[in-house]
Amino acid sequence: MCLATAGVIVSVAEGDGGDPLWRSAEVDFGGVRQRVSLACLPTASVGDAVLVHVGLALALVDAAGGLP
């Protein structure tokens, strides 16, 4: 249930009026692309590796050691 998947941000869509509630990204999970909310990662940007759980990006992943 708590499984989360790491992917890389391909593009970012700012929310209406810059409200972080609606900020989202297209994230590439090894070829599969999904729309993901960035409401909890306001500084995440294109190229960042993020950990995603049920459609919400929860953490930036330190990708130096490869994606978990």
Binding site: M1, C2, H53, V54, G55, L56, L58
Partner: peptide, 8 residues
Amino acid sequence: GFETTAPA
């Protein structure tokens, strides 16, 4: 879900 899932 736990605190992982509840934020969503």
